[in-house]
Design a protein around this nucleic acid. Sequence first.
DNA 1: CACCGTTTCAGGACTGGCTG
DNA 2: CAGCCAGTCCTGAAACGGTG
Length: 296
Amino acid sequence: MTNVLNFRAPPLPFYILGGLSDFAPGDRHLSRQGIGVFDLLIVRKGCLFVGEDERRFALTPGSALLLRPDAYHYGYEDCRERTEHYWIHFQTSGEWSAEDGAGTDAPVASPEEGAPRMLHAFDPMPYRLQLPQFATLPQASHMYELLDRLIALNETSYLGITRWQIDAMFQQVLQQLAATIRKQASSPRAACAQQAAMYLRRHYKEDVKAEQLGEQLRFHPIYIARCMQAEFGCSPIEYLLRYRIEQAKLLLLRTDFTIARIAEEVGFHQAAYFTSRFTKYEGLSPRQYRQRFLKE
DNA sequence: CACCGTTTCAGGACTGGCTG
DNA sequence: CAGCCAGTCCTGAAACGGTG
């Protein structure tokens, strides 16, 4: 059973459309199969009865339900009283997965295998955005206020400057939703992963071995690898590699150092190996990268 | 000739299953 | 939660070929 939806960021999920629905007694939520977008429902008044596949939720004021784009949704019971609820449709162009009650992280969607990745001069370090599938909002009135403003903006205009205001506001909605499971982020596992990441960023120019990392953090290297996998979706070595490549990109654009010099500066012993890793992650060689982005 | 890309393979890192 | 073991996978070094 799904409890948490994990979004690998960047890119962050983006807003599509939202509104406030007012149901009279006897109305019920629509039945839809695989609508292709995430649907966030937040009840302001009354009680909404919604099912997703085999699970059923009775949403009372202040509760939020995040419906998956690939599941079957339905109203399983009529509203007994006047029921107001916000609905927000959003989507992501990145990877996302559903985590079940047992803690397994089953991948659900990801960019097409082998598809050419979008090329940027710089990519920030990846992180994971966790959203609960069902939550009771601690500051529901604040959320209602935010959603009212979001919907009002949405209705006035959807172009130009308003578009990024909508996106910024939508990120605040996600932030409030994510905050309901923030307790988990301060777990020993998350702390271990954060410490490891900090150590790797500080020592990326040096030879960092898993064993050495374990000694520094006073944890078993295998345990650290698991913590980082859970927190960042990658192993310590992959995290280090990505960080080194980001630093190398800076040097490629800011200096006229040779590829071999840059490889050495960011912790690679062999320029050939640096080139192969860089090409794998960026889709073009260091030299091509420099030529391409210095021209722009 | 300097620099970059490809191939190969030993050893280190990671994963899954399990234990305390 | 934290660590161990066995099997598998991947990294990184080295050698060599290609290119401008």
